[in-house]
Design a protein around this nucleic acid. Structure first.
Lengths: 356, 356
DNA sequence: TTGAAAGCGCTAACAC
DNA sequence: GTGTTAGCGCTTTCAA
């Protein structure tokens, strides 16, 4: 079917030269068409496309990357647990990147510690990525890597000693979300709100603590000591067992939905009712927890908006290194009130008296 | 600190030639050291490594890929929802790939339909991957792409019309898991077991239906019509509302944990107790559902084992194209009995009479 | 055990 | 609008 076109008839995959031959144009014109550049006649474009189609031509990204110095790909350093947050963020990052014409290279780092992140970054950089996305890393410690591409941090400011050409940050509004969660509980009439926090060295934990503190301080509420978890339901359960015997606790803000689920389970096992005796609000917004008993009140992390916004920023920094960064909007603060929160027993008691 | 070494002292990143210069060897020797090839003296190796370290040398994968025709990377076609299964599988695939020296390029396909998979494959192939992993795609339809690298299907056999150099499959034992789940219910004394299935065009759905049918048939149990869901808790909830009024239903196998959660919620809202009136078993093994009420009985998908095994196969096919494939073990069948399953009311009734 | 030369397939710069 | 030339940084021959 295809005419004998030099090597194109051979055994190897067709190259741009073969397409050029079939289309009757130069390789550069093929390149122009494939890259959507201007200054190509409609006729030439049509012929190139037809030839590429006929030959089953597939562009070689490695060659393009070598010649152009750009890979049109982004590296992602993902935190290693298959939690809803990480997974959801990754899905949205991939989609946003793809829509901007970038492919994704992913490395998981179970702990998110500086060494792990440094290693992941080094590997990504070797592979040749035009930019890197790091989500919510650890608070302390240097990341001892020379990074010569823009780096986007999702959800937290970059570690202080991090050295990169250009560092970008996009917020998920964790502080505001934590404040909203705490305020919701305070509004319900609780005197104060305990927090079941994540590992202390995570940025994500820090923001949530600060938002909670801010809400407490604004109402003049006493700030109880933090409870510690590791994001897992099991750790929430452990914290709940410890907490159950303290009758003064009427409201808990858990820094993650799964911890909230574990916490509630322990509380109920110990005979404390949720939300009648203790209210619990989670953090993340995994829709499945609308279907447990009680349905979990939570705040939704705007992973979709953050990913879109972040990738927009990153792509901008890659493609227009010298331009100003575009302005970024405030992430939405979305409180999802379901069944795990209610007024404290004291209020309910009053209500009960009235209605009895 | 570093001596003036030609271009190395310039503004661009050091290349292998710079390392060679500093080490006092040829570029080829540098290449040999970096690729762990034999026939390099210890002394030469030491000098090359030292020079690379001193220069902060980073290998250029694009150049290597162009020259060698291999990228040392794997493409993953992931199904688009941020569910526990997909996310968990991806984490384990990445880990196994990294341990074998391969990087990962990921594309999500929300629906897993043939067009989506074809597009994802084409994109991955352009990027230049040495192999591809596709997890549980759709049953029907061609995937009209010329694929010239080995393709691994996790969890299901390849679509019939799929044309690839080499097609590999690794099972998660879904059929056996579905059978185990169904048998568990039958063993408890239920006369039959309903199934809340996933979308019919998914392979994953097919396996689970077949395992369920096999278990039913083996006991001579009647096979009730399938209920339909889309993996989401919301769809499980919808199915549960429809099911609640049918008093003859005493046991349901939900083909996904989240659907099971939604189902249970609807059942309870309608006044049916779980597990007293109806038993429900899920499918996946997300640990968080050990902490809901009732704790979900489920079967655990061996994502870790499947990913390890699958990547081993894929890497073998890539690196030793002509060799036999290594044998693969049977994936473990793990039933996790928790609180959402119990004997049917008839049995319990008998027990209740005795104890009253 | 090591090195020299040739090219992988593409794009950049500059001509026309 | 289009073509020509010269590499991108590495690995692959093949020779020493």
């Amino acid at each position: 079917m295809a005419p004998e076109v030099g090597r194109a008839a051979g055994s190897t995959a067709p190259r741009s030269a073969d397409v050029a031959l079939v289309a009757g144009v130069s390789r550069k014109t093929v390149s122009r068409v494939l890259n959507g550049e201007r200054y190509v006649s409609d006729e030439a474009r049509r012929r190139v496309l037809a030839a590429a189609e006929e030959l089953g031509y597939r562009l070689n990204h490695a060659a393009r990357a070598l010649a152009s110095g750009r890979t049109r790909s982004l590296g992602v350093v993902a935190l290693g647990t298959a939690g809803y947050g990480t997974a959801s963020l990754l899905v949205h990052i991939e989609q946003a990147a793809r829509e901007s014409g970038y492919a994704l290279r992913v490395i998981y780092t179970p702990d998110g510690d500086p060494e792990g992140i440094a290693g992941a970054l080094a590997s990504l950089l070797e592979q040749g990525v035009d930019g890197v996305v790091v989500s919510e890393p650890i608070v302390k410690g240097d990341v001892p890597v020379r990074v010569d591409v823009p780096v986007l941090f999702i959800g937290a400011p970059p570690a202080p000693a991090f050295t990169a050409t250009r560092t970008l940050t996009v917020s998920v509004g964790a502080l505001e979300l934590a404040r909203a969660a705490t305020e919701h509980l305070l509004d319900l009439g609780h005197e104060t709100v305990h927090q079941l926090a994540g590992p202390r060295q995570w940025y994500a934990t820090k923001d949530r603590i600060e938002g909670w503190q801010a809400a407490l301080a604004a109402r003049g509420a006493h700030e109880p000591p933090l409870l510690n978890g590791d994001w897992s339901a099991a750790s929430g359960y452990a914290a709940g067992r410890a907490l159950a015997s303290d009758r003064s606790v009427t409201a808990v803000f858990a820094a993650g939905d799964e911890m909230a689920i574990g916490l509630i389970h322990a509380l109920r096992e110990a005979g404390r009712r949720v939300p009648e005796d203790i209210s619990v609000v989670g953090f993340d917004g995994n829709p499945v927890f609308a279907y447990v008993s009680p349905p979990l009140t939570t705040v939704r992390q705007p992973f979709d908006a953050a990913a879109r916004e972040g990738i927009r920023l990153l792509v901008h920094a890659i493609e227009k290194p010298d331009a100003e960064l575009p302005p970024t909007g405030q992430p939405p603060v979305e409180l999802v009130v379901r069944g795990s929160t209610a007024p404290p027993p004291s209020h309910r008691g009053a209500t009960a008296l009235r209605t009895t």
